[in-house]
Simulated assay, not measured.
Amino acid sequence: MGVAAPTVLQPRAEPAVAPASAYHQVVTWGAAPQKMTNTFNTQTFRMIVKTSVAGNNVQIRLSNAFGTRAITFGSAYLGRQGSGATVASGSNRQLRFGGSRSVVVPPGSSVLSDPLSGTVAANTKLAVSLHVVGNAGQVTGHAVASQVSYVSSVGDYAARSDGAQFTPTPNWFFLDGVVVTTSSTIGTVVCLGDSITDGTRSSQNLNRRYPDYLATRLQQQHSTRYAGVANVGISSNRLTGDGTGVSGLARFDRDVLAQPGVDTLVFMQGINDIRLDVATRPEQLTAAYRQIVARAHAHGIKVIGGTLMPFYGDKFYTEERERLRQQVNQWIRSSNAFDAVVDFDKATRDPIFPKRLRPSYDSGDRIHPSDAGYQVMANAIDLSQFR
């Protein structure tokens, strides 16, 4: 028997006799949508993303959350990334929406594709190709991807596996989620935060953000509950006020509650509120933390709260802001407001000078971790909390 051409989706692995209740949808990759400044007209986007959990019947979610006009996606394909902008031979498959190859997404809306039959593996780099018809208007995407994706010249190249018409982009556009159907014992973990959650200054294309390391740990530790991980961090985002992206409080419903299968939230946010004087008293942040927890609990979601990490040497550092960070961290540790706490501050601070990041965990800008720092953050999370 000959060897079949490589495909993204392999034959379904679970027994056909299993009841429908044994399965549900979870997120295997996710990013928070943002308002972008780019302009596009009749072009193809090839977005590169990495799965965190295996599952069947893969679907993609397209967002026009910040659009000012309806967007027509003329075609959409999903395959395994080859090299650069290429798609692995034989793996590119057409996606449909309500049985149609095209779909119109109104402004402020999102759409989920029909499922593709078969199984997608964990740790798979997918190439999702989207052809946008006409002027896209105000574009929705994600600015700090830490992953090179691709945009074409004018035309529809979604079905093609070669990358000749594509040029690199540091952003993701339109795609904000990849969903799979898997065992009901597997859930979605959402990581909500700012640039530290987003993975700013982590190594390009290597998936070394702390949520990536967390996903790997969850896969490797069989004594814990396996989970898909959605990273909804936004660089420069604030919790209590709009800035880069709407505030964490304002985007909570869309970026956390709307995620399929979510049962756990890992949450660290507030350092930008402190740095930029959006919050000048601890009560401004702790009241917001209580809101996040209450809204999550109303939907049966467990919340793991993270302490705020050191930022000595950052251009916005002052001793007054440092005192506020310490007060907020003390509240996070002692208030019992969260279901569990991960002490990111303790894990990453310099033991000789605790106001700053440990030098080996510092990317060089005094606030964002290095790859090693992101790994330490993930290692600080007690995986027994996911059982």
Rank of each mutant, 00 (worst) to 15 (best):
E322V: 00
N379Q: 14
L62Q: 01
P310Q: 10
R358S: 07
L112E: 13
G241Y: 14
C191A: 13
R201K: 15
D277Q: 11
G261P: 07
N56E: 15
G84V: 02
G90D: 08
R251M: 07
H142D: 06
T264M: 10
T51S: 10
H299A: 07
T119W: 15
S117V: 12
A378C: 06
V17W: 14
R209Q: 14
D253W: 03
K346C: 02
G199F: 10
L383K: 06
N237S: 14
P310D: 08
A347V: 11
S109M: 13
G141S: 05
R321Y: 03
L78Y: 04
G118Y: 09
R356M: 08
A279D: 13
G99C: 04
F97W: 15
A85D: 01
G108V: 00
I352W: 07
I352R: 08
P106H: 00
R325D: 10
I234N: 00
G305A: 06
H142K: 07
L95V: 01
L206C: 07
S100D: 11
V266W: 04
A164I: 06
A298Q: 09
F173I: 05
V53F: 04
S110P: 01
S334G: 11
F166H: 03
R325Y: 08
T7A: 15
T307N: 06
L308H: 09
T181F: 05
I196G: 01
S223M: 13
G134T: 06
A13D: 11
D156L: 10
I274K: 03
N56T: 13
N123D: 15
W29D: 07
K346H: 10
Q284V: 08
P19V: 03
P15V: 08
T42W: 02
D350G: 01
L95D: 02
S184E: 07
Q375S: 04
Y289Q: 05
A22R: 15
P6S: 14
D194K: 02
G2T: 14
R160W: 11
V87C: 00
A258P: 00
T307I: 10
D242Y: 01
A31P: 02
S360D: 15
A230M: 05
R96C: 09
A88V: 12
I301S: 08
A136N: 06
L112S: 11
V120A: 11
Y157Q: 06
S113E: 05
P19E: 10
A5L: 14
F316I: 00
T37Q: 12
S113G: 00
V111F: 03
H368P: 03
A294Q: 15
V3K: 14
Y157D: 03
N205D: 15
Y289C: 03
S183A: 13
S83P: 00
R356K: 14
S117E: 14
G248A: 01
S89A: 12
V229Q: 06
V58R: 02
D314V: 04
T140N: 06
G199H: 09
Q138W: 01
A378I: 03
K346V: 05
W172L: 14
N56P: 00
A164W: 01
L62G: 01
G177W: 06
Y150W: 15
W331F: 09
P282W: 01
T72D: 07
G55I: 11
V87G: 00
T42P: 02
P359V: 03
M1C: 13
I292K: 05
Q269D: 10
D362F: 03
G141A: 04
Q291K: 09
